[in-house]
Design a protein around this nucleic acid. Structure first.
Lengths: 132, 132
DNA sequence: TTGATTGCAAAGTGTTTGCAACTAG
DNA sequence: CTAGTTGCAAACACTTTGCAATCAA
């Protein structure tokens, strides 16, 4: 159970700390290189998988086979509203969906319910801009 | 806008008709071969993409880069409750989430809101079975 | 006839892994 | 010293695509 505090691991942890956004292994890797850290893509993948497996990261599967990761944050549930044009992300704190989900599970006799909700739209600043 | 009714296309359409389950391109391809149809994997992929793009199929991205498809059924909005153990899929018809989403969008001055909600749990039959 | 469709095999993506060198503790 | 970690390059799984042959209308 020893666990070396290698510079790579530390750098990745910091990168994950920085934003609440979901980012891909490749994005994170590029980010680390830009910051001057020496890490290989393989190492990034390895840590990401380990962290996700340990429950420290949330994951999201995109079309194209890409997986994005982000650190588990607030204990309270919240969702993200992402602007499809500029990418701006807003946290949405609200528990009504949570309650609804619980009810649905009960009604269908399902237990250990998990759910993922993704919201996207056009933010105030992007509503007149053409999407392309 | 001609559109040949090829045996491959017909067979695939029938296969999609058969179950409400999400299935991968490879699963569908294997299924078709078993039924005695001659189709290439490439063709299955091509049709699946076309149908999904046209809005005739719903898709789901799994970890591992796999995409699963199934035919769109009810016109009204609904969600899916999937059993993590046996894969059984239940449709959940309910509009309260829809309304909530709309409210959230308004509150943040976002327009053209889209959302995706995925629900998973353990169905009644799988609640005592070990997950492995 | 003619444009859409098909199959094949090659190419492409994102991710994983074997292995030898390396390093934190 | 030694188990865990790293980088590289090869391997993987799923999907996409170029192209020539084929087929439906």
């Amino acid at each position: 159970m020893t666990m070396p505090r290698t510079p790579q691991r530390i750098a990745l942890a910091q990168a994950l700390e920085q934003t609440p956004q979901f980012r891909s292994a490749q994005q994170l890797h590029a980010h680390l290189l830009q910051e001057g850290h020496e890490v290989s893509l393989a190492t990034v993948y390895r840590h990401l998988n380990a962290l996700a497996e340990a429950g420290a990261l949330e994951t999201r599967n995109l079309s194209g086979g890409e997986t994005r990761y982000r650190q588990c944050r607030s204990s309270g549930t919240h969702h993200h509203l992402v602007c499809r044009d500029c990418g701006e992300t807003t946290d949405v704190a609200d528990t009504s969906v949570e309650q609804w989900v619980q009810r649905v599970g009960d009604r269908h006799h399902f237990t250990d319910i998990r759910y993922a909700l993704e919201l996207s739209g056009l933010c105030a600043g992007c509503q007149h801009a053409p999407t392309g």
